[in-house]
């Protein structure tokens, strides 16, 4: 019985350390990566695997079912909500042209031929465009040109 307890403790400690290490690399990646989309990859990492590992460690160490059920609930919430917020943020990031296009190998949303004249450069996402209506019309025209006008998928 005692040995089993120590094995469980060692497993829990390893899981905790691995999860904490993933959180550290998330901070590092957030600092080192170039644009919002790549930083988003660094951000989803602790949110999914790191917190999952630490939750498993907590479930191993804690006694009493109520805490374990609640940890399970937190893990389920994280796995349900993390993709949604990641998707929403990265979609807005792409639409606001807050992407380092020069670091993209392939961009199949707008593949090459359409000149990016709506927003120039890599403006901060919270800077409003100079002429919102005109730039929106231009971007709609760009959207409709290759495809024959599909409605925007978001709204």
């Amino acid at each position: 019985m005692n040995e089993i307890a120590t094995v469980r403790d060692v497993v829990a400690i390893v899981l905790v350390l691995a999860g904490a290490f993933l959180c550290l690399t998330a901070g590092l990646g957030l600092l080192r990566f170039h644009d919002v989309l790549t930083r988003m990859h660094a951000g989803t990492k602790p949110q999914v695997l790191g917190i999952l590992l630490i939750m498993v460690a907590g479930a191993i160490r804690l006694q009493g079912w109520s805490a374990i059920w609640m940890l399970l609930l937190v893990a389920a919430f994280q796995m349900l909500t993390a993709p949604v917020s990641a998707h929403m943020i990265s979609r807005v990031a792409y639409r606001r042209r807050h992407v380092r296009r020069d670091l993209l190998l392939v961009d199949e949303i707008r593949s090459g031929e359409s000149v990016d004249r709506v927003y120039r450069g890599d403006e901060p996402a919270d800077a409003p465009p100079e002429q919102p209506a005109a730039s929106l019309r231009a971007s709609r025209r760009e959207d409709q040109a290759p495809s024959g006008g599909s409605p925007r998928a978001g709204e």
Partner: peptide, 12 residues
């Protein structure tokens, strides 16, 4: 997320 990971580490 890191804050909640810290809380979970404490709980564990």
């Amino acid at each position: 997320v890191i804050i909640s990971a810290g809380l979970a580490v404490y709980a564990a």
